[in-house]
Each structure stands twice: as structure tokens, then as C-alpha cells.
């Protein structure tokens, strides 16, 4: 049974792949099969089918981790969702099943036995692929978090005595600690007398975020500099007031430009045009 199935599947591989691609293209919101270069689609599809047939071609244990890893890493990069991967497996299974029926490998008589063989083939594969996908996804997720932490929160010395820290993205407790450390080390190192915390890139300022910002500003005051909050968008001003957060001890401005002027005047300087 198995050997016959294997022979027929291998013989008709090209037709299977073609049909499978057709089916995948019909998926709603599908981008990969429509917009990627043809040779890339072809290659990825062959890798996928090779993966799917590895355990009938090379025996049960042939589904090696390396191949699985390579494939999942690739499709994650291509932006395949886990749902899409699942659908790809479904489609592959139904294409193969239809083909086996057409070739009369599957008949009315052996249907019951064959179902067992067939699910014994596809299901373990599905499990392994989904698991590999989840593991890879977690890794990607952790990497992104680290990357975000690394790129976030550097203090930039703009002019003598004035430095700027642009904050981008959501601020959680972990990041807030990092921001505070970078901010203070930077202030002391750069001998900044005024620092501008720019929150233009912070999507939401809730009580927690405001609390972290207030703490950071307090700490800046302790090391001997002044902290100003700039880049307060109208909706942020609205939420701050609505939440009853008191920022009255702060100098705040709506734009970085006005903050900069303020910072210069605090350090007894101004920008003049050269005639």
C-alpha cells in the first residue's frame, strides 16, 4: 500500500505542486503566491512538498530537524501566518488525496484502510511543522524584543549642555529601567544641563508610563540637570489630563523645536541669524 502510494505521489509530483499552488492562490488575502517572483514560489513549493513527502520517501524518522527549521524560518520571513501554514498542509493533503483517487490507488474498497495510512502520514507532519513554527516564532519574538531594547533610548548630545532622548514605542517597566539608566549615565557623561525627553514616538501615555517619566525626571534633577518633556501630541495631552496625572512640576512643550528654544534660554543662550 505504502510503496504504491509513494510511487504514484513521486511520479505525479509536478502536477501536485501545480495544483497545490493554484489552490494556495485562491486563499483570501494571500500575497506570497501572487507577488513573489515565480522562481521563488517554485523553489519554496518544492521545499514544502519535499518536506511533506520526506517521511514516506525516507522512512518515519526522516523528518530531520534541520530541514524543518530551515523551512519554518523561511516561511516566517515570507510572512506566512500559522493559519496559512496550516492551510498549506490541508491543501496539500486534499490535492494528493484527489490525485490518488484519480489514479485509482484509492478505491471504494480500500478507502477505510487507506484513511489510516493517509492520516498516519499527514498528521505527525502537521504537528511537527506547527511546533517548529511556534518555536521559531518565539525565537523571533525574543530577538525582536532584544533588538528593540538595544535601539531604544540613546541620549544624543545636540549642543553644549543640551541633550535629547527620543523615545519610540511602548514603554513597559523593563524598558523604563533601561531608559532611566541610559538617561542618567548620559547626562553625567555628556555634562548635560538640560535634557529633552521626546515622547513624539510613544503611542500611549497611561498612568504607568507617566509614572516612569516622572521618576526619570526626578532622578535627572538629583544628578543635577533639568528634564523637559517635549513632543506632547494633542491626544496625549487629553489622556494625561483625563487620567488626572499631575505634570505641573515639569516643563513641557508640544514640539521638540519649542523645547529646544526653552532649553537654550535656560542655559542663557539663543539662536541668532548671522548677517
Amino acid at each position: 500500500m505504502n510503496s504504491k502510494m509513494r510511487t504514484v505521489v513521486n511520479e505525479h509530483m509536478d502536477a501536485i505542486i501545480e495544483k497545490w499552488i493554484e489552490l494556495m492562490k485562491e486563499e483570501k488575502g494571500e500575497r506570497f503566491f501572487h507577488f513573489m517572483p515565480q522562481h521563488l514560489v517554485e523553489k519554496t513549493s518544492r521545499e514544502f512538498t519535499a518536506l511533506m513527502t520526506s517521511n514516506i520517501n525516507e522512512g518515519e524518522s526522516a523528518l530531520n530537524d534541520e530541514r524543518l527549521d530551515d523551512f519554518t524560518e523561511k516561511v516566517i520571513r515570507f510572512g506566512w501566518s500559522i493559519k496559512f501554514v496550516n492551510k498549506a498542509i490541508d491543501n496539500f493533503a486534499s490535492v494528493v488525496f484527489e490525485m490518488l483517487e484519480d489514479q485509482e490507488v484509492i478505491t471504494e474498497q480500500n478507502l477505510r484502510i487507506f484513511m489510516g495510512v493517509f492520516t498516519g502520514w499527514i498528521n505527525p507532519l502537521r504537528e511537527s511543522i506547527i511546533e517548529a513554527y511556534a518555536v521559531k516564532w518565539e525565537q523571533t519574538d525574543t530577538l525582536q524584543k532584544v533588538a528593540l531594547q538595544e535601539l531604544s533610548a540613546s541620549l544624543i548630545p545636540v549642543v553644549d549642555k543640551v541633550s535629547i532622548m527620543p523615545l519610540v514605542g511602548t514603554i513597559d517597566t523593563e524598558r523604563a529601567k533601561l531608559i532611566m539608566e541610559n538617561l542618567l549615565e548620559g547626562v553625567v557623561q555628556q555634562r548635560a544641563e538640560v535634557v529633552l525627553l521626546d515622547i513624539t514616538g510613544v503611542p500611549v501615555v497611561d498612568t504607568m508610563v507617566a509614572h516612569h517619566i516622572i521618576q526619570a525626571a526626578d532622578a535627572v534633577r538629583l544628578v543635577g540637570a533639568k528634564c523637559m518633556l517635549v513632543g506632547i501630541r494633542p491626544e496625549i495631552a487629553q489622556t494625561i489630563v483625563a487620567l488626572g496625572i499631575n505634570l505641573s512640576d515639569f516643563t513641557t512643550t508640544s514640539t521638540l523645536r519649542r523645547g529646544m528654544q526653552e532649553a537654550l534660554s535656560l542655559t542663557n543662550r539663543e539662536i541668532v541669524e548671522v548677517e
Binding site: L184, E185, A219
Partner: peptide
């Protein structure tokens, strides 16, 4: 004067 960053953070 001269409060170290680490000291400022722990105080806060």
C-alpha cells in the same frame, strides 16, 4: 553636587 546615576535611581 555629583550624585551618581546609580545613587539617583536607588533614591527614586
Amino acid at each position: 553636587t555629583g550624585i551618581q546615576p546609580a545613587v539617583a535611581i536607588t533614591l527614586i
